[in-house]
Design a protein around this nucleic acid. Sequence first.
DNA 1: CTAGTTGCAAAGAGTTTGCATGGCG
DNA 2: CGCCATGCAAACTCTTTGCAACTAG
Lengths: 146, 146
Amino acid sequence: MTKKRYHTKGREALLSYLREHPDCQFSAEELCLAVNGEAEKGKSTVYRQLNQLSETYAVRRFRDEEAGRNLYQYVGEGCDCRLHFHEKCLQCGRIEHLDCQGSAAFAAHLRAEHGFVIDCGQTMLYGLCAECYATAERERGGQAHA
Amino acid sequence: MTKKRYHTKGREALLSYLREHPDCQFSAEELCLAVNGEAEKGKSTVYRQLNQLSETYAVRRFRDEEAGRNLYQYVGEGCDCRLHFHEKCLQCGRIEHLDCQGSAAFAAHLRAEHGFVIDCGQTMLYGLCAECYATAERERGGQAHA
DNA sequence: CTAGTTGCAAAGAGTTTGCATGGCG
DNA sequence: CGCCATGCAAACTCTTTGCAACTAG
């Protein structure tokens, strides 16, 4: 089922680069530039390599909604991104890290009650940050315009 | 900043259709078919309408990673999708609803500790379901075992 | 040597935009 | 009547695929 893979300089370089930047998400274009020195040179190969790497547990493909493209991030061993959530405000778009306080309890609950082993590093929580929620409430209460 | 909007039959029909199917996510193509009777007829207008609707709190754009396209869902008033999480297995791709048991506690924690008002209906939890986790563990152990 | 990998160009899918016409207010 | 909305086609972006040359094992 799984195809045999050769160890090639290209894919190794890509993986190394991603592993050296554990908390960063890169676009295919950025990675192509980083590895090949040019954003266009061999981009199809970079896409193929990224697809291959995404089949493993080491690299994960995310979606950048705003830009309408994919982002790639190292999420393998020695990476702490799995231990905390990220929360993104639907209004202002800001992303913030969430310390492990309640996250661990929630993760434990999911696992104990549902057998679901959540991967915080790959989960984005959506909602409204304090400021935007306040603004939304004010507008809703004001009913100035709808 | 916000542009003036006319009440038009087209956008109203779209919103009505979405509102009548509160737990469903539709592609632009499906919506075009549902509203215009044809998947191609006036699709650019449908895209424009969906973008307009997505600027409100009533409709939200999601991403269908597998199909590489956007999905649209009604998430406004009278919609219960905000009250529970969905968990998606990174391995088998299955999506399951998660009852409110621990979700409510987690949501409350987020709000109390971080002022972040989470929107469950717009958040997807990623991880491994029980079966896939067991399989993954077996394979990982297999390296040392077999 | 054989099968996987690379690189370029071209195709492909989904979405957006230009422009003239139609419709709401 | 002004301005927004519509509809078609063309353009655009990101990603994938075809094919010949290359390379790891």
